[in-house]
């Protein structure tokens, strides 16, 4: 027995300082409390980055790392997504063959409404995202659906976000709607589950590992993740949607990734956006 005690592992001890306390509630449909989750996650970051204001989390890694913030502010002085917003506005205003347009499909003519997405659609019993409704608008007017990841759909989404800048996210889960709560829980579970050959959860990098280097890259905090999409990503050299990023991240865990706008990815967006309730829309954004 003595020998066993002497045989030991150092790495795990050092790593264990990063371990956050185990959950005692909120893992089942009966016990999950989105509001308790949101407060706990926000408190986690408050403790981890005491000098960062809550509202600043919409700026991702630049909210917590001063060095990369300076570089990013230089980029934002001449935003790389400027052309995309203009193109998005142009596309948004082109009438469909039947004479109707996007403005006819959305509340308030589609202007200043980004903060209402994603939302729980009771009739359809599913989470609806902005990109999904852009395509549904097209299809219901006899147009072909756009591809989910980049190009026109990202540009239209970027323009719609642009017109909503500064509006506050307030995602709600209808009281007593077990199906809506189940969708939220599915998103939460996806976020915290380790998966893929590399055995990584979203939380591994973006909660435990936030602002710690993976090679030369710093993992962003999860809070505010959805506020600034679509994003012009230097690595892509173009604009892309949130679900394009989800798919890439999922694949980076060496998983066979889910499809963009699949039910689970929409549930993930639902969970993540709920976590960011109280933060503002600041999309489109630019990121490394």
């Amino acid at each position: 027995m003595k020998i066993i005690k002497n045989l030991a592992l150092g790495v795990s001890f050092i790593m264990s300082t990063q371990l956050v306390s185990a959950a005692s509630t909120g893992t089942t449909l009966e016990t999950v409390s989105p509001e308790a989750d949101r407060i706990a996650l926000q408190n986690f970051y408050k403790k981890r980055f005491p000098n960062t204001e809550l509202q600043d989390y919409v700026n991702g890694i630049y909210a917590v790392d001063a060095d990369s913030r300076t570089q990013w502010e230089d980029i934002e002085a001449f935003p790389p997504y400027e052309f995309d917003v203009e193109e998005g506005e142009r596309l948004f205003n082109i009438a469909f063959a039947n004479g109707k347009g996007y403005a006819d499909c959305f509340e308030n003519g589609g202007i200043g409404i980004r903060q209402n997405f994603p939302y729980w659609n009771k009739e359809e019993g599913t989470v609806k995202t902005l990109e999904q409704e852009i395509n549904e608008c097209r299809e219901s007017n006899g147009e072909k659906a756009l591809k989910w990841g980049k190009g026109p759909i990202a540009q239209i989404s970027a323009y719609m976000a642009w017109t909503s800048r500064g509006k506050v996210f307030d995602i709600s889960i209808p009281d007593g709607d077990k199906k809506a709560l189940a969708a939220y829980l599915d998103g939460k579970k996806f976020f915290y589950s380790k998966r893929g050959q590399l055995n990584l959860s979203c939380a591994n990098c973006h909660v435990q590992g936030s602002n710690i280097r993976i090679r030369a890259d710093l993992a962003s905090p999860a809070l505010g993740h959805t506020s600034h999409f679509p994003v012009f990503r230097s690595k892509w050299g173009e604009l892309g949607t949130l679900h394009r990023r989800y798919k890439g991240c999922h694949q980076d865990s060496r998983s066979n990734p889910l499809d963009m706008q699949s039910e689970t990815f929409r549930n993930l967006e639902f969970f993540q956006t709920y976590m960011s309730n109280g933060l503002v829309v600041n999309g489109p954004g630019s990121r490394k």
Binding site: S12, M15, S16, V20, Q197, N199, N204, Q208
Partner: peptide, 13 residues
């Protein structure tokens, strides 16, 4: 397998 000692370790097994 680093998760043997720390189940939430970010280190791939």
């Amino acid at each position: 397998d680093a998760t043997k000692n720390n189940p939430i370790s970010i280190m791939p097994p």
